[in-house]
Simulated scan of single mutants.
Amino acid sequence: MRNIYNLILLFFITVVIFTETLRTRKTRIPRINVRRYTRKRVTRATKPVIKREKERPLSFSGISYEYDKKKLTKQIDEWVNSKPIVYSPARAIIVPHADLRLCGNITGNAFRQIDKTIIKRVFLIGPSHYFQFQEGRLTPSLYYQTPFNSIEIDTEVYSKLIKTGHFMYMDEAQDELEHSLENVLPFLGRVMGRRHFKLVPIIFGDLDELQMKDISKFFLEYLNYEENLFIISSDFCHWGKIYNFTIISKVFNTVNGTIYKLDEYAMKTISTLDPNKFQQYLNRFKNNICGQVPISLFLHTVKYALDKYFVVSFKFLDYTVCNTTNTSFVGCAAAALVVF
């Protein structure tokens, strides 16, 4: 009986010591492994207090692209330099943001069309994947880290965006969890090299008609000058159960054929540079293009440019279907816009 009592006492002492150890222990856990990847509604009523951090770190190095700098350099140089210059100097490009090891060859085609010697400002625009909101969100950081350098955020343009009433700063968690911008940074950092330019990164949620109109007119002021480059980050059709999209065309009866046909029609529609036709396409075919809001903004901006007698030329340069897993696929495309 005495032995049982001693065992019970020893057990409770062990539990107390273990609990106290956990409470006082200060172990640094990488944020990327512990944050919840849930689609969370964030409203203006719950607007966070933003502390401007110095630099946004890389969250997807070694996950979405090569961690080793030498290997990454070799990959990007091959992807870019192997492509012909056919639409240059591009004032705007559309690039994918899937795993670079799958779509880097496509992204390289778009970056081949830019002239880095004239670029002083880059608008990097992508969709929000994990948070739902109805405006544009700006980074709280003052610099964006790339695998090759750090790029200064254009705080002057940020101040102008805030004054429109259609933008607010996101918190650190939103910024570091979003991959639609970071997966473009290896190309931007490598291609631009040591040349000084400023970055305007923006993540978009849903936008209403007024927001779309006002923001497009704001972008038009910068599209007019060759020193500005617009990068629209978007993948095309996402197929698979994880995307809740498993339609297979009766005509093609294959996954790849279905994705290709949906995206082919999307690219033809976008190439008309008519935002209304693109919206009609989305309403009809329900293609889950993740960057449909940034693409729509781009089309509205170009429409206003054409109304002001701008002369432009736009073309899709490359396309492929990436097999992200055994049961999921993503369409990836590259395009370029030239303003004369």
Rank of each mutant, 00 (worst) to 15 (best):
F230C: 12
N283G: 14
V302F: 01
F236L: 12
L262F: 14
N283D: 15
D214R: 00
Y225T: 09
K268V: 06
F236E: 10
H300L: 03
G257Y: 00
L282C: 07
N276A: 07
F298A: 05
Q292H: 13
I242L: 10
N288I: 02
I289T: 14
F230Y: 14
M267Q: 12
N287V: 13
Q280R: 09
K268Q: 11
I242Y: 05
F219L: 14
Q279G: 07
C290A: 03
D214I: 11
N224E: 14
N244V: 06
T301P: 02
D274G: 10
I289W: 03
K241G: 05
V251S: 10
K261H: 12
I247L: 11
F245T: 06
Q279S: 13
Q280S: 13
E227Y: 08
W239D: 00
T269A: 07
K308E: 14
S313F: 03
F314M: 12
V255F: 05
S234P: 00
S271T: 08
K303M: 10
Y222S: 02
L299I: 04
N287T: 07
F316H: 07
T269E: 06
L262Q: 06
Y222T: 01
V293Y: 09
F298Y: 11
I242Q: 09
Y304F: 14
F310L: 07
F314H: 10
P294G: 03
K250E: 11
N224M: 11
K277S: 14
A266D: 14
F219Y: 15
Y304K: 08
K303E: 11
L262H: 04
V312M: 06
Y225R: 13
N276E: 13
D214A: 11
Y309H: 15
Q292I: 03
Y243Q: 02
S271K: 01
L273Y: 05
A266W: 06
L317Q: 01
R284P: 02
C290R: 08
V293M: 15
K213V: 04
L273P: 05
N288W: 00
K217Y: 09
V312N: 08
K277F: 12
E226P: 05
I248A: 10
N256Q: 04
C290V: 00
I270A: 04
